[in-house]
């Protein structure tokens, strides 16, 4: 894939989607260790139920890390300037997530040319788990 540049990128361009395998309890356990988020609500069903949840659910930073993979696959990581997400709903065990993004604006800021992207991580039914934006420098 070629590196996106000011001349080749257009508003409305879609980033190639990233489809993930179903979230398993193993996924959550590994991400707890790797990310440092040891909150038992994500890895201990007994704790989650005692806290009023049906079951464990994914750490919010997990779909955000998937979204980061989408971004750094589209453009080299060091072109990423800003990355902002809002966590809209919890991700249950078994969910198959899909990351997507679209160019919504081309702009110049502080002498640098940038693409503004609109981002989402949705389940298979299209329900958004997280929504966000990113600014990526263009060559």
């Amino acid at each position: 894939m070629s590196i996106p540049s000011w001349d080749t990128v257009s508003v409305g361009d879609a980033l190639p989607t990233l489809a993930l395998p179903a979230i398993s309890r193993t996924t959550l356990a590994l991400f707890a260790g790797a990310s440092g988020d040891h909150n038992p609500i994500h890895i201990d069903s007994d704790f989650a139920r005692a806290a009023g949840m049906e079951d464990v659910f994914a750490q919010g930073m997990l779909p955000m890390a998937y979204l980061a993979r989408l971004l750094t696959t589209w453009a080299p990581q060091w072109q990423l300037r800003q990355f902002h997400v809002r966590f809209s709903s919890m991700t249950a065990v078994g969910t198959k997530l899909v990351c997507s993004g679209m160019v919504t604006e081309k702009l110049e800021r502080d002498g640098e040319r940038l693409a503004k992207l609109q981002l989402a991580v949705c389940d298979e039914q299209g329900v958004a788990k997280i929504k966000g934006e990113a600014l990526v420098a263009l060559t």
Partner: peptide, 18 residues
């Protein structure tokens, strides 16, 4: 604040150097 009561609402990163 009990751990079971917290949720991550938003997260933002601004990058300056690798």
């Amino acid at each position: 604040v009990p751990l079971g009561h917290i949720l991550h609402g938003e997260q933002q990163f601004t990058y300056h150097a690798p």
